[in-house]
Amino acid sequence: MTALLRRLSSTRFTLLGMALLAVGAALSYDNPVDTPVWALVAPMALLAVNLLAAVMSNARINRRPGLLIFHLSLLGIVILAAIGRLTHMEAHIEMVEGSTFDPAELMNVRKGPWHRGELEKVVFVQGPFTVDYGPGMMRGPTRSHVLVPDGQGGWERRVVGDDTPLVLEGYRFYTTFNKGFAAVLTWIPETGEPVTGTIHMPSYPLFDFRQANRWTPPGGEEVKFWLQLETGLKADQAWTLDPSKAHGILVLRSGEQREELLPGQATALPGGVLRYEGLSSWMGYKLFYDPTLQWLFLTAVIGVLGLAAYFWNKFATHPWPQAGEVSRKGAEPELETAPWGGGKL
Protein backbone atom coordinates (compact mmCIF):
# COMPACT_ATOMS: atom_id res chain seq x y z
CA MET A 1 0.00 0.00 0.00
CA THR A 2 2.75 2.40 1.00
CA ALA A 3 4.76 1.47 -2.07
CA LEU A 4 1.72 2.12 -4.27
CA LEU A 5 1.12 5.48 -2.62
CA ARG A 6 4.74 6.44 -3.15
CA ARG A 7 4.53 5.51 -6.80
CA LEU A 8 1.32 7.45 -7.28
CA SER A 9 2.77 10.46 -5.49
CA SER A 10 5.82 10.58 -7.75
CA THR A 11 6.80 13.98 -9.12
CA ARG A 12 7.04 12.27 -12.51
CA PHE A 13 3.27 11.79 -12.35
CA THR A 14 2.90 15.44 -11.35
CA LEU A 15 4.91 16.59 -14.33
CA LEU A 16 3.08 14.20 -16.65
CA GLY A 17 -0.26 15.46 -15.34
CA MET A 18 0.82 19.06 -15.82
CA ALA A 19 2.01 18.35 -19.36
CA LEU A 20 -1.31 16.69 -20.20
CA LEU A 21 -3.20 19.55 -18.59
CA ALA A 22 -1.20 22.00 -20.70
CA VAL A 23 -2.24 20.07 -23.82
CA GLY A 24 -5.85 20.04 -22.60
CA ALA A 25 -5.75 23.77 -21.92
CA ALA A 26 -4.30 24.47 -25.36
CA LEU A 27 -7.01 22.31 -26.96
CA SER A 28 -9.67 24.13 -24.93
CA TYR A 29 -8.66 27.53 -26.29
CA ASP A 30 -11.77 29.35 -27.47
CA ASN A 31 -13.98 26.43 -26.36
CA PRO A 32 -14.02 24.45 -29.64
CA VAL A 33 -16.98 22.09 -29.87
CA ASP A 34 -14.82 19.16 -30.98
CA THR A 35 -12.62 19.17 -27.87
CA PRO A 36 -14.00 16.65 -25.37
CA VAL A 37 -14.26 17.66 -21.75
CA TRP A 38 -11.92 14.74 -20.97
CA ALA A 39 -9.03 16.73 -22.37
CA LEU A 40 -9.16 18.68 -19.11
CA VAL A 41 -10.86 16.24 -16.78
CA ALA A 42 -8.41 13.34 -17.32
CA PRO A 43 -5.20 15.25 -16.44
CA MET A 44 -6.97 16.96 -13.54
CA ALA A 45 -8.05 13.56 -12.21
CA LEU A 46 -4.50 12.26 -12.60
CA LEU A 47 -3.15 15.30 -10.72
CA ALA A 48 -5.80 14.89 -8.02
CA VAL A 49 -4.83 11.24 -7.42
CA ASN A 50 -1.15 12.20 -7.48
CA LEU A 51 -1.76 14.99 -4.98
CA LEU A 52 -3.84 12.87 -2.61
CA ALA A 53 -1.18 10.18 -2.66
CA ALA A 54 1.48 12.81 -1.99
CA VAL A 55 -0.50 14.29 0.89
CA MET A 56 -0.86 10.84 2.47
CA SER A 57 2.68 9.66 1.94
CA ASN A 58 5.00 12.60 1.46
CA ALA A 59 6.31 14.43 4.51
CA ARG A 60 7.55 17.24 2.25
CA ILE A 61 3.91 18.23 1.83
CA ASN A 62 1.96 16.93 4.82
CA ARG A 63 4.37 18.27 7.44
CA ARG A 64 4.38 21.76 5.99
CA PRO A 65 1.02 23.37 6.75
CA GLY A 66 1.33 26.21 4.24
CA LEU A 67 2.31 23.92 1.41
CA LEU A 68 -0.38 21.44 2.41
CA ILE A 69 -3.04 24.17 2.41
CA PHE A 70 -1.93 25.36 -1.03
CA HIS A 71 -2.07 21.90 -2.57
CA LEU A 72 -5.37 21.01 -0.92
CA SER A 73 -6.83 24.30 -2.14
CA LEU A 74 -5.84 23.33 -5.70
CA LEU A 75 -7.74 20.12 -5.20
CA GLY A 76 -10.65 22.11 -3.74
CA ILE A 77 -10.68 24.43 -6.77
CA VAL A 78 -10.87 21.48 -9.17
CA ILE A 79 -13.72 19.89 -7.18
CA LEU A 80 -15.62 23.18 -6.85
CA ALA A 81 -15.16 23.98 -10.54
CA ALA A 82 -16.55 20.52 -11.38
CA ILE A 83 -19.53 21.05 -9.07
CA GLY A 84 -19.97 24.48 -10.64
CA ARG A 85 -20.18 22.98 -14.14
CA LEU A 86 -22.69 20.37 -12.98
CA THR A 87 -24.95 22.92 -11.29
CA HIS A 88 -24.45 25.98 -13.45
CA MET A 89 -26.88 27.72 -15.73
CA GLU A 90 -26.28 30.24 -18.50
CA ALA A 91 -28.82 31.88 -20.75
CA HIS A 92 -29.78 35.11 -22.50
CA ILE A 93 -32.94 37.10 -22.35
CA GLU A 94 -34.29 40.26 -23.97
CA MET A 95 -36.39 42.24 -21.50
CA VAL A 96 -38.83 44.81 -22.87
CA GLU A 97 -39.35 47.93 -20.80
CA GLY A 98 -42.22 47.37 -18.41
CA SER A 99 -42.15 43.58 -18.68
CA THR A 100 -41.69 41.17 -15.77
CA PHE A 101 -39.01 38.48 -15.92
CA ASP A 102 -40.40 35.26 -17.29
CA PRO A 103 -38.13 32.15 -17.32
CA ALA A 104 -40.05 30.88 -20.35
CA GLU A 105 -38.51 33.68 -22.44
CA LEU A 106 -34.92 32.59 -21.81
CA MET A 107 -32.86 31.82 -24.92
CA ASN A 108 -29.66 29.78 -25.49
CA VAL A 109 -30.13 28.00 -22.17
CA ARG A 110 -27.24 25.82 -21.04
CA LYS A 111 -27.29 24.17 -17.67
CA GLY A 112 -25.61 21.37 -15.80
CA PRO A 113 -27.47 18.13 -15.02
CA TRP A 114 -27.52 18.96 -11.30
CA HIS A 115 -28.89 22.47 -11.69
CA ARG A 116 -31.44 22.97 -8.91
CA GLY A 117 -31.80 26.72 -8.76
CA GLU A 118 -34.99 28.51 -7.88
CA LEU A 119 -35.41 30.49 -11.04
CA GLU A 120 -39.18 30.62 -10.56
CA LYS A 121 -38.59 32.79 -7.49
CA VAL A 122 -36.76 35.45 -9.51
CA VAL A 123 -38.93 38.52 -9.94
CA PHE A 124 -37.98 41.84 -11.43
CA VAL A 125 -39.48 44.38 -13.78
CA GLN A 126 -37.46 45.98 -16.52
CA GLY A 127 -37.44 49.77 -16.46
CA PRO A 128 -35.82 52.26 -18.83
CA PHE A 129 -32.13 52.26 -19.67
CA THR A 130 -29.49 54.59 -21.03
CA VAL A 131 -26.11 53.91 -22.62
CA ASP A 132 -23.41 56.54 -23.04
CA TYR A 133 -21.28 56.66 -26.16
CA GLY A 134 -18.08 58.55 -26.80
CA PRO A 135 -17.08 60.05 -30.16
CA GLY A 136 -16.67 57.31 -32.73
CA MET A 137 -19.47 55.26 -31.17
CA MET A 138 -17.29 54.02 -28.32
CA ARG A 139 -19.63 52.44 -25.81
CA GLY A 140 -19.57 53.86 -22.31
CA PRO A 141 -21.49 53.02 -19.15
CA THR A 142 -24.87 51.29 -19.32
CA ARG A 143 -27.51 52.14 -16.71
CA SER A 144 -30.43 49.78 -16.68
CA HIS A 145 -33.21 50.56 -14.20
CA VAL A 146 -35.05 47.62 -12.72
CA LEU A 147 -37.64 47.13 -10.01
CA VAL A 148 -37.27 44.24 -7.57
CA PRO A 149 -39.61 43.25 -4.73
CA ASP A 150 -38.57 44.93 -1.47
CA GLY A 151 -39.99 42.10 0.66
CA GLN A 152 -42.68 44.35 2.14
CA GLY A 153 -45.11 44.28 -0.71
CA GLY A 154 -43.50 47.16 -2.57
CA TRP A 155 -40.76 47.62 -5.16
CA GLU A 156 -37.17 48.65 -4.79
CA ARG A 157 -35.49 50.55 -7.62
CA ARG A 158 -32.03 49.38 -8.65
CA VAL A 159 -29.63 50.47 -11.35
CA VAL A 160 -27.46 47.76 -12.90
CA GLY A 161 -25.10 47.66 -15.85
CA ASP A 162 -21.72 46.54 -17.17
CA ASP A 163 -19.80 45.16 -14.17
CA THR A 164 -22.70 45.55 -11.74
CA PRO A 165 -25.07 42.63 -12.25
CA LEU A 166 -28.53 42.20 -10.82
CA VAL A 167 -28.24 39.29 -8.39
CA LEU A 168 -31.48 37.55 -7.39
CA GLU A 169 -31.72 34.08 -5.79
CA GLY A 170 -28.12 33.43 -6.82
CA TYR A 171 -28.86 34.24 -10.49
CA ARG A 172 -26.74 37.02 -11.91
CA PHE A 173 -28.14 39.16 -14.72
CA TYR A 174 -25.54 41.12 -16.69
CA THR A 175 -26.45 43.81 -19.19
CA THR A 176 -24.89 43.18 -22.61
CA PHE A 177 -24.06 45.28 -25.66
CA ASN A 178 -27.20 43.73 -27.12
CA LYS A 179 -30.10 46.13 -26.66
CA GLY A 180 -32.47 48.00 -28.90
CA PHE A 181 -35.96 49.06 -29.80
CA ALA A 182 -39.24 47.25 -30.02
CA ALA A 183 -42.52 48.12 -31.65
CA VAL A 184 -45.54 47.51 -29.43
CA LEU A 185 -48.35 46.15 -31.59
CA THR A 186 -51.91 45.06 -31.06
CA TRP A 187 -53.37 42.53 -33.45
CA ILE A 188 -57.16 42.72 -33.64
CA PRO A 189 -58.27 39.64 -35.55
CA GLU A 190 -61.54 39.54 -37.51
CA THR A 191 -62.73 36.92 -35.06
CA GLY A 192 -61.32 36.48 -31.57
CA GLU A 193 -59.65 38.57 -28.89
CA PRO A 194 -57.06 41.28 -29.57
CA VAL A 195 -53.50 40.35 -28.71
CA THR A 196 -50.78 42.85 -27.72
CA GLY A 197 -47.08 42.05 -28.07
CA THR A 198 -43.74 43.41 -29.21
CA ILE A 199 -41.60 43.03 -32.28
CA HIS A 200 -37.93 43.29 -31.28
CA MET A 201 -35.73 45.08 -33.76
CA PRO A 202 -32.03 44.18 -34.12
CA SER A 203 -29.47 45.55 -31.66
CA TYR A 204 -29.10 49.32 -31.73
CA PRO A 205 -26.95 51.23 -32.67
CA LEU A 206 -24.96 48.24 -33.96
CA PHE A 207 -27.58 47.70 -36.69
CA ASP A 208 -28.71 51.28 -37.03
CA PHE A 209 -29.69 50.83 -40.68
CA ARG A 210 -31.24 47.39 -40.33
CA GLN A 211 -34.05 48.05 -37.88
CA ALA A 212 -36.27 45.49 -39.54
CA ASN A 213 -38.07 42.32 -38.64
CA ARG A 214 -41.00 40.24 -39.81
CA TRP A 215 -43.99 38.56 -38.23
CA THR A 216 -46.97 36.56 -39.35
CA PRO A 217 -50.18 37.38 -37.43
CA PRO A 218 -52.38 34.41 -36.45
CA GLY A 219 -54.58 33.71 -39.45
CA GLY A 220 -52.91 36.48 -41.48
CA GLU A 221 -50.05 36.90 -43.94
CA GLU A 222 -46.41 37.69 -43.20
CA VAL A 223 -45.77 41.34 -42.43
CA LYS A 224 -42.37 43.00 -42.85
CA PHE A 225 -41.58 45.80 -40.42
CA TRP A 226 -39.05 48.57 -40.63
CA LEU A 227 -38.56 51.14 -37.90
CA GLN A 228 -37.55 54.66 -38.93
CA LEU A 229 -35.84 55.89 -35.79
CA GLU A 230 -34.94 59.35 -34.57
CA THR A 231 -32.58 58.93 -31.61
CA GLY A 232 -30.28 61.93 -31.92
CA LEU A 233 -27.38 59.62 -32.84
CA LYS A 234 -24.23 61.51 -33.88
CA ALA A 235 -21.43 59.07 -34.61
CA ASP A 236 -18.61 61.62 -34.27
CA GLN A 237 -19.82 63.14 -31.00
CA ALA A 238 -20.53 61.98 -27.50
CA TRP A 239 -24.11 60.78 -27.31
CA THR A 240 -26.44 58.98 -24.96
CA LEU A 241 -28.81 56.30 -26.16
CA ASP A 242 -31.98 57.08 -24.24
CA PRO A 243 -34.97 55.21 -25.70
CA SER A 244 -37.39 57.39 -23.72
CA LYS A 245 -36.36 60.34 -25.92
CA ALA A 246 -36.48 58.40 -29.20
CA HIS A 247 -39.23 58.50 -31.80
CA GLY A 248 -40.06 55.91 -34.38
CA ILE A 249 -42.28 55.57 -37.41
CA LEU A 250 -43.21 52.00 -38.18
CA VAL A 251 -43.13 51.10 -41.85
CA LEU A 252 -44.83 47.85 -42.70
CA ARG A 253 -45.24 45.84 -45.85
CA SER A 254 -47.71 43.07 -46.43
CA GLY A 255 -47.86 41.85 -50.01
CA GLU A 256 -48.23 44.96 -52.15
CA GLN A 257 -49.48 47.05 -49.22
CA ARG A 258 -47.09 49.59 -47.65
CA GLU A 259 -48.00 51.69 -44.63
CA GLU A 260 -46.27 54.18 -42.38
CA LEU A 261 -47.71 54.23 -38.90
CA LEU A 262 -47.27 56.70 -36.08
CA PRO A 263 -47.91 55.57 -32.50
CA GLY A 264 -51.67 54.99 -32.05
CA GLN A 265 -52.33 54.46 -35.74
CA ALA A 266 -53.72 51.24 -37.19
CA THR A 267 -54.08 49.60 -40.55
CA ALA A 268 -56.24 46.82 -41.93
CA LEU A 269 -54.39 43.72 -43.08
CA PRO A 270 -55.57 40.37 -44.36
CA GLY A 271 -57.14 38.66 -41.34
CA GLY A 272 -57.43 41.67 -39.05
CA VAL A 273 -56.27 45.11 -37.99
CA LEU A 274 -52.80 45.92 -36.73
CA ARG A 275 -52.37 48.86 -34.38
CA TYR A 276 -48.96 50.39 -33.63
CA GLU A 277 -49.22 51.25 -29.93
CA GLY A 278 -45.84 52.89 -29.67
CA LEU A 279 -42.10 52.57 -29.42
CA SER A 280 -40.48 50.64 -26.60
CA SER A 281 -37.01 49.31 -25.87
CA TRP A 282 -35.45 46.03 -24.83
CA MET A 283 -32.30 45.23 -22.88
CA GLY A 284 -30.38 42.03 -23.50
CA TYR A 285 -29.14 40.28 -20.38
CA LYS A 286 -26.78 37.42 -19.89
CA LEU A 287 -27.90 35.16 -17.05
CA PHE A 288 -25.27 33.29 -15.05
CA TYR A 289 -25.74 30.95 -12.11
CA ASP A 290 -22.99 29.10 -10.28
CA PRO A 291 -23.43 28.39 -6.58
CA THR A 292 -19.70 27.73 -6.11
CA LEU A 293 -18.43 31.21 -6.98
CA GLN A 294 -17.82 32.48 -3.45
CA TRP A 295 -16.35 29.16 -2.34
CA LEU A 296 -14.02 29.11 -5.32
CA PHE A 297 -12.76 32.55 -4.46
CA LEU A 298 -12.31 31.72 -0.79
CA THR A 299 -10.51 28.44 -1.55
CA ALA A 300 -8.17 30.08 -4.03
CA VAL A 301 -7.29 32.92 -1.67
CA ILE A 302 -6.67 30.56 1.26
CA GLY A 303 -4.43 28.46 -0.99
CA VAL A 304 -2.28 31.39 -2.05
CA LEU A 305 -2.09 32.63 1.54
CA GLY A 306 -0.89 29.16 2.55
CA LEU A 307 1.80 29.23 -0.13
CA ALA A 308 2.81 32.76 0.86
CA ALA A 309 3.02 31.77 4.55
CA TYR A 310 5.16 28.78 3.65
CA PHE A 311 7.65 30.86 1.71
CA TRP A 312 7.57 33.65 4.26
CA ASN A 313 8.77 31.19 6.90
CA LYS A 314 11.24 29.68 4.48
CA PHE A 315 12.74 33.01 3.52
CA ALA A 316 12.80 34.17 7.15
CA THR A 317 14.92 31.21 8.22
CA HIS A 318 17.17 31.44 5.14
CA PRO A 319 17.62 35.15 4.37
CA TRP A 320 18.66 36.44 0.97
CA PRO A 321 22.43 36.45 0.49
CA GLN A 322 23.99 39.90 0.61
CA ALA A 323 26.79 41.18 -1.59
CA GLY A 324 30.17 40.76 0.06
CA GLU A 325 28.83 38.13 2.46
CA VAL A 326 28.75 35.45 -0.16
CA SER A 327 31.83 33.49 -0.90
CA ARG A 328 32.17 30.08 -2.48
CA LYS A 329 32.69 28.57 0.95
CA GLY A 330 30.06 30.54 2.78
CA ALA A 331 27.31 29.78 0.32
CA GLU A 332 27.55 26.02 0.38
CA PRO A 333 25.84 25.07 3.69
CA GLU A 334 22.63 26.90 2.88
CA LEU A 335 22.45 25.41 -0.58
CA GLU A 336 23.04 21.82 0.31
CA THR A 337 21.18 19.34 -1.79
CA ALA A 338 17.81 18.32 -0.44
CA PRO A 339 17.50 14.74 0.82
CA TRP A 340 15.20 13.78 -2.04
CA GLY A 341 17.75 14.82 -4.62
CA GLY A 342 16.40 18.22 -5.63
CA GLY A 343 17.46 21.64 -4.50
CA LYS A 344 16.24 23.51 -1.48
CA LEU A 345 15.09 27.07 -1.93
Binding site: T11, S28, F288, W340
Partner: peptide, 29 residues
Protein backbone atom coordinates in the same frame (compact mmCIF):
# COMPACT_ATOMS: atom_id res chain seq x y z
CA UNK B 1 -20.50 37.28 -16.53
CA UNK B 2 -18.04 34.37 -16.50
CA UNK B 3 -14.90 33.80 -14.47
CA UNK B 4 -13.11 31.64 -16.99
CA UNK B 5 -13.80 31.13 -20.67
CA UNK B 6 -10.51 29.93 -22.19
CA UNK B 7 -10.07 33.07 -24.26
CA UNK B 8 -6.59 33.60 -25.70
CA UNK B 9 -5.26 35.56 -22.73
CA UNK B 10 -6.76 33.24 -20.14
CA UNK B 11 -5.42 30.14 -21.89
CA UNK B 12 -1.98 31.68 -22.26
CA UNK B 13 -1.92 32.88 -18.62
CA UNK B 14 -2.96 29.45 -17.37
CA UNK B 15 -0.26 27.75 -19.44
CA UNK B 16 2.26 30.20 -18.01
CA UNK B 17 1.17 29.35 -14.45
CA UNK B 18 1.35 25.65 -15.27
CA UNK B 19 4.86 25.88 -16.77
CA UNK B 20 6.05 27.85 -13.75
CA UNK B 21 4.56 25.28 -11.38
CA UNK B 22 6.06 22.39 -13.36
CA UNK B 23 9.48 24.03 -13.45
CA UNK B 24 9.40 24.57 -9.68
CA UNK B 25 8.38 20.95 -9.06
CA UNK B 26 11.19 19.76 -11.30
CA UNK B 27 13.72 22.08 -9.67
CA UNK B 28 12.75 20.96 -6.17
CA UNK B 29 12.63 17.27 -6.97
Amino acid sequence: GRYWAWDALETSSFLNWLFLGAALHARLS
